[in-house]
């Protein structure tokens, strides 16, 4: 059971991530974001539920959608470092070199693979390290539904299951792989069914319900910390925004219909949780307004910091290749 404080924390993180998403959209429109922005609006409950209560020394891998905001922000990376990285400033998490590839090993966030599916096998390796170190660390690897089609998942899942590595595989199934509905490219309804072949637990959970996500991950994480091996959790969610911000919102060759999106807007994870907490008396409307205001202030301050930071010195390119 979650305490009142824990519920407040989950809610606050949902709001913080939503506000950061909005700041990033503004950053794209004002030309400050180097590259693109793949909004994760409406999918926040997955990452927030999975990572808010991780230990600092746990490892996380995240999918490209949202460039990791729903996981790296709850894990502890500052919005300043996140935004500055996207603005390609030297105060960014990767000194402005990575843009959407946000990484900070202090928070167990080793980065983002440029090729989708590249992270699975890396996660397996971090699982080996965590098991060897025997400090109870876990690796949480959340990837999109499309990415689970990569063979790297099969190889990593076999390795993790065979050696009982402390890994939780999360599927953030937003039902779209760019313009293609996932149902067109995967033979079964539930990707969690893949778990059976490897002999690990596989569960399906409502990805709009941050508490349900949290509970599923918590069970898997405890299992992993106890040395009982990996699990697979599929979170059913939906992509509200186009593939990347500003892109034509297609479904296959045609356009996606607003009727399809509408029911999912009603299942917004922030609103759902807010209603629940108001009803439970955990939050008052005053709390809701305060949390909203504080999150906006935090993100606006971070945006100003990033805007004012200097660009990286090109001299840096002379020392990029090797450690020494």
């Amino acid at each position: 059971m979650l305490t009142k404080e824990q519920k407040m924390k989950l809610y606050t993180n949902l709001v913080r991530v939503r506000k950061l998403d909005e700041i990033m959209v503004k950053g794209v429109l004002s030309g400050k974001v180097c590259g693109h922005w793949s909004s994760q609006k409406g999918q926040e409950a997955v990452g927030v539920g999975a990572t808010t209560f991780l230990r600092k020394d746990d490892y996380i891998f995240f999918c490209h959608r949202g460039h990791g905001i729903t996981t790296v922000i709850p894990k502890g990376i500052s919005p300043r470092a996140f935004i500055a990285e996207h603005f390609s400033k030297n105060s960014g998490a990767c000194q402005g070199m990575g843009c959407l590839h946000v990484a900070d090993m202090e928070y167990g966030a080793p980065g983002l693979s440029g090729s989708l599916g590249g992270d699975f096998v890396l996660a397996a390796g971090m699982g080996i390290a965590a098991k060897m170190r025997a400090k109870g660390q876990v690796v949480v690897c959340i990837q999109g539904d499309g990415t689970y089609g990569r063979g790297t998942f099969h190889e990593a899942a076999l390795m993790a299951a065979n050696w009982k590595l402390p890994i939780v595989w999360g599927v953030e199934n937003n039902q779209y792989m760019v313009f293609t509905p996932t149902s067109d490219i995967f033979p079964k309804e539930n990707m969690a069914d893949l778990a059976f072949g490897y002999g690990m637990p596989g569960v399906v959970v409502d990805g709009q319900d941050v508490v349900a996500v949290f509970e599923a991950f918590q069970t898997a994480i405890e299992r992993a910390r106890a040395g009982e091996g990996p699990s697979l959790i599929e979170c059913k969610t939906y992509r509200i925004e186009p593939h990347t911000y500003g892109m034509v919102d297609k479904r296959c060759a045609g356009l996606r219909s607003p009727e399809e999106i509408e029911p999912w807007v009603k299942k917004d994870p922030v609103n759902l949780f807010q209603e629940r907490l108001l009803k439970e008396g955990v939050l008052t409307q005053a709390d809701v307004d305060r949390i909203d205001r504080e999150a906006i202030e935090e993100m606006e301050e971070a945006e100003r910091f990033a805007t004012e930071s200097p660009a990286p010195d090109p001299q840096i390119l002379k020392q990029v290749l090797y450690w020494k």
């Binding site: 699982g127 080996i128 390290a129 790297t152 390795m159």
Partner: peptide, 28 residues
């Protein structure tokens, strides 16, 4: 068996897990 590990035929996983273990402080 903790430091000498036989894997299946999975070159992607072998090469990739080496990166992961290195990131996590080991020398694979």
């Amino acid at each position: 068996k903790d430091r000498v590990l036989d894997t299946s035929i999975s070159e992607n996983a072998i090469a990739g897990a080496a990166v992961g273990a290195a990131l996590a402080g080991y020398r694979p």
